[in-house]
Write a protein that binds this DNA or RNA. Structure first.
Length: 472
DNA sequence: CGGTGGGACGATAGCGTCCCACCGGTGCTCTATT
């Protein structure tokens, strides 16, 4: 290892490097573009913190959430680095104009893509030397760019104008997503480090159930059998509230629900309570998770059919970060699959795009998500036909991603192998603590066997073997 | 695609039933009012 790297990681409070980190840091220090796919945890943060400390010039870090900017800022400040800035809407306009004139003072600048694509801010950054552009949670480019946050699609432009090498980091990116990231960010001869995304400590269960009632009962049974903190992902806000009420206090569990309809204060509070342990069971939508780093989540249940396997992998990946065994299960009904399928083409039509481009002011302030999306494209500098083109391509890629989900649901071999094959990543060898498939009929049988043999369980392996019909 | 909430309607004075339109998960930022 380079000695200067060694010194910096020690200063940042880390013991040593994990696989991949050294390759990523070295490539970035040499001024190369790099895309790093690393399993969850602090692994990615260390990469850009260390590189940023050692490279001349400002390190600009694109983060998707205000909460992530805040966390990262605090972490760096705690390690003794004071030249850290977060540029976002929390900054008063007067403060913003002051910092924009003093950007070169800072070593790290955290910013959301919407702010980074703003002309005045981009100009201010162009005027200083940017040594490194980091795109954290880079899968957002693919996952959120086209139909949620189009500013993510303008990062290639930004990169070109700043003239800095790029370090893109994510935990989940199969080959097709990697190529989207490379193309969108205009990476040149990028060093791609893709570690295995397998998580051997996770048991991966997959169950098809008859109806929603059966799903709910199954959730109750699993909450009773598996002790420890649990996240139950639900497809709708309404279901998070229903289930939280239904299972409140069950087996002494301290339960809450979490979704984007809650006010910011409550969200922050519940996240902290869950992280610190005064809540142990969270019924949540996909709003919960990014940036949450709770090590001892023992179970993640995913209710419904995800639109992409990335989304599913991100969700179950929040279990067992301490490396101890954890249970994950996908619980779905046939209706769930149809529900998800029906949402795929739910994007603004060319008619709406045309109307909005003719009279944008008439629609300003609308809370319709489709209108907001088109306006965001417009703000990001897209022409109407470019928007239509982007949305059209998006429908195709969503359908493709969903067909991978359907294949995954239908595959009857090793579930883990199937999943990791999609991520172009090697999987551990199948064993008892690997994965399992169950369907409604098998479950009824297991349930009655469990009632007959009410002995309690000794090891995680036994629990999982009994809960699931582990395939051989 | 499927669930659902709201409005219209019919047959009758308080309420069913049907149909249709619309919604469903994610978050930045800005702007105009309380």
């Amino acid at each position: 290892m380079r000695s200067e790297v060694e010194g910096v990681i020690e200063q940042l409070g880390y013991q040593n490097l994990r696989p991949g980190q050294e390759e990523i840091i070295n490539a970035a220090l040499d001024g190369k573009d790099v895309l790093g796919i690393l399993p969850t945890g602090s692994g990615k943060t260390l990469c850009f913190q260390a590189t940023g400390q050692l490279r001349a010039g400002v390190t600009v870090v694109v983060e998707p959430l205000l909460a992530l900017m805040r966390d990262q800022q605090l972490r760096l400040q705690a390690s003794g680095e004071k030249r850290v800035l977060a540029i976002n809407s929390q900054l008063a306009p007067s403060e913003l104009s002051v910092v924009l004139q003093n950007l070169s003072y800072y070593q790290f600048i955290f910013i959301a893509p919407e702010m980074l694509t703003r002309p005045d801010i981009l100009r201010a950054l162009q005027a200083v030397k940017v040594g490194l552009l980091v795109v954290d949670e880079a899968h957002c480019i693919y996952q959120w760019g086209p139909d949620f946050r189009p500013a993510y699609l303008r990062l290639g432009d930004v990169r070109q104008r700043l003239g800095a090498p790029v370090m893109a980091l994510t935990a989940t990116a199969p080959e097709n997503v990697r190529s989207v990231i490379v193309r969108q960010l205009r990476l040149q001869n990028a060093t791609i480090y893709a570690g295995s995304v397998d998580r051997p400590e996770l048991f991966i269960g997959r169950e098809s159930l008859l109806d929603q009632r059966a799903v709910n009962e199954r959730v109750g049974a699993l909450l009773a059998q598996v002790a420890g903190p649990a996240i139950i992902y639900c497809p709708t806000k309404k279901l998070t509230e229903q289930l939280a009420q239904q299972f409140s206090g069950l087996h002494g569990r301290r339960v809450a629900f979490y979704h984007a309809g809650l006010d910011g204060h409550t969200r922050t509070l519940r996240e902290r309570q869950f992280t610190e342990g005064s809540l142990d069971t969270l019924f949540a939508t996909s709003a919960f998770g990014m940036g949450v780093d709770k090590p001892d989540v023992r179970m993640v249940l995913y209710l419904g059919v995800p639109a992409t396997l990335e989304e599913y992998m991100q969700a179950i990946g929040r279990a067992g970060r301490d490396g101890q065994p954890a249970l994950t299960a996908l619980l779905y009904t046939a209706k769930d699959a149809q529900h998800t399928a029906g949402m795929l083409a739910n994007l603004p039509s060319p008619i709406l795009v045309k109307a909005l481009y003719r009279a944008p002011k008439a629609y300003a302030g609308s809370d319709d998500p489709q209108i907001q999306l088109v306006l965001a494209y417009q703000q990001a500098g897209y022409s109407a036909s470019e928007v239509n083109q982007a949305l059209d391509a998006r429908i195709g890629s969503k359908q493709k991603a969903f067909s991978a989900v359907v294949n995954f649901l239908q595959a009857d071999g090793c579930v883990r192998a199937e999943l990791l094959h999609y991520f172009d990543s090697p999987a551990k060898t199948h064993d008892d603590f690997c994965c399992g498939i169950a369907d409604a009929g098998v479950l009824a049988q297991i349930h009655s066997e469990q009632q007959a043999d009410n002995q309690g369980f000794n090891t995680w392996q036994e629990v999982f073997k009994q809960i699931f019909n582990v395939s051989d």
